[in-house]
Write a protein that binds this DNA or RNA. Structure first.
Lengths: 252, 252
DNA sequence: GCCCGTGCGAGATCATCGCTCTCTGTTCGC
DNA sequence: GCGAACAGAGAGCGATGATCTCGCACGGGC
């Protein structure tokens, strides 16, 4: 949810609100703009869910709104901007869903990890088009702006946290310095960027990323039909995969 | 390569060729059709590589061919049919690339497995749009016809074969009947459909599928930009992942 | 060897799309 | 209150996929 992301529309935050400093009355025009922006996003999300990312048509949305097509451009300067807003929202929604699944303080680490994986899959199955939007092939010609990478990291961080916890508990198999030096360097930069304590070894980042890519692979495979005719109702198969991944990070 | 897939266009194979029984003279018209169909596919592949799946425009292709747009429809009744032909071709190309990488009789099983993974990744990096076409999010509104699932299995079979070989060599950890009964059933159906000997245990299918989905996840993550700012030049990371997968199936 | 059916390309047409421009009415800030 | 900024309407541009009809040329059956 959280429909207040559309600050990305740019034109809207130029001189209207002036809500940065004072708390002037919100200017009927501004609230109308905000509400219409939100409404556009809701309709866009609906169209996205029903017709997919490239079935998303500004004209169709404007029709549903009873507006003329050109009016939409007052709120989103282009289709790509709308897509960006939807992507940010989707990352947020997925993050919310997974975070609430991960928020089980009394569950075992292994259970929490598996819950996270299952939550990712559940959200993906519930919102296939959104999943495809954020984790599928990049939309043609669409270049993900920098805005989208920050919310994207949130879900990964949940996985990362569990792996760190596993390492803290002494469960993660660390190996003895046999990690490729390039990986060590790259992992070090990630840790630096994250501001994590220097004591976290690079293998933690590598394992977390490995888990994440595998998680993506399993979910996308199921969602994109790669498992058809094999483990088709994939509930058990995915569960088995999560268990295997948990084993991999020492959560037996 | 193998430009004779367009049999899907339907209208073409009605009464023209009559090459099913006798070897009548190929009918200048038929060879023209065949060559033009092939040319369309070549151009389509080029456009696909340059502008992505949804940048593929029948009109643009017809322009490059010096034809009028409506003429294309004599050869492919719709854009989706063209996409289907491209998908089949892409599966074939990937299969060829990986098969040739796997054809190293004197290499160790582990090395062969890693070579297969690396070959998949290499092909994907060399043909990102094709990869997105076959393993990315389904093209909007496009429903993959049954025609595409057979060539899709070919690459998976290469992975499956290695896992079977690992099992034959007694390397694969089989466990002792602890596999979920649902997985056992589904794996059994797969084995039955494959006509593999009854002695192959279900865990082999499950492990192979697991490897495959993880392989897909790693390659797609890299290709779709999910590894940006982490293991960005992902050569070493992916190699490490392949090694881990090899470990997983007992190929130490 | 001719002839009618069929394949083939051209051209026009339709509905849709993203996006731009101009115009008029409304709202806001000073 | 007034000028400037905003909002929506409407027309329009160039492009897309798809359909239809029209002639022309080819080719198998008589």
């Amino acid at each position: 949810m959280s429909t207040e992301q559309p600050g990305s529309s740019g034109t809207g935050s130029r001189g209207i609100g002036s809500r940065g400093t004072g708390s002037k009355k919100p200017t009927a025009r501004a609230v109308a703009r905000e509400s219409l922006t939100a409404e556009i996003l809701v309709l866009a999300r609906r169209h996205l869910a029903e017709h997919g990312a490239d079935g998303l048509s500004l004209r169709a949305i404007s029709r549903d709104l009873g507006m003329v097509s050109s009016a939409i451009y007052r709120y989103f300067p282009s289709r790509d901007e709308l897509l960006t807003a939807l992507i940010v929202q989707s990352y947020g929604n997925l993050g919310d869903a997974v975070a609430s699944a991960a928020d089980q303080p009394e569950a075992s680490l292994r259970q929490r990890f598996i819950d996270i994986c299952a939550a990712v899959r559940a959200w993906a199955k519930g919102h296939p088009q959104e999943w495809a939007l954020i984790y599928g092939s990049p939309v043609p010609g669409y270049q993900a702006p920098q805005t989208t990478i920050e919310p994207a990291t949130r879900v990964i961080m949940l996985v990362f946290d569990v792996v760190v916890a596993a390492w803290s508990a002494g469960l993660l198999e660390v190996g003895d310095g046999e990690l490729d030096p390039v990986l060590v360097t790259q992992a070090g930069q990630v840790l630096e960027g994250l501001g994590v304590g220097d004591d976290v070894p690079p293998i933690v980042v590598a394992r977390a990323t490995e888990c994440w890519t595998h998680l993506l692979g399993v979910v996308s495979s199921e969602l994109f039909g790669q498992l058809a005719n094999t483990f088709d109702p994939a509930d058990r198969f995915t569960l088995w995969c999560w268990a295997n991944l948990a084993d991999r990070i020492g959560l037996r």
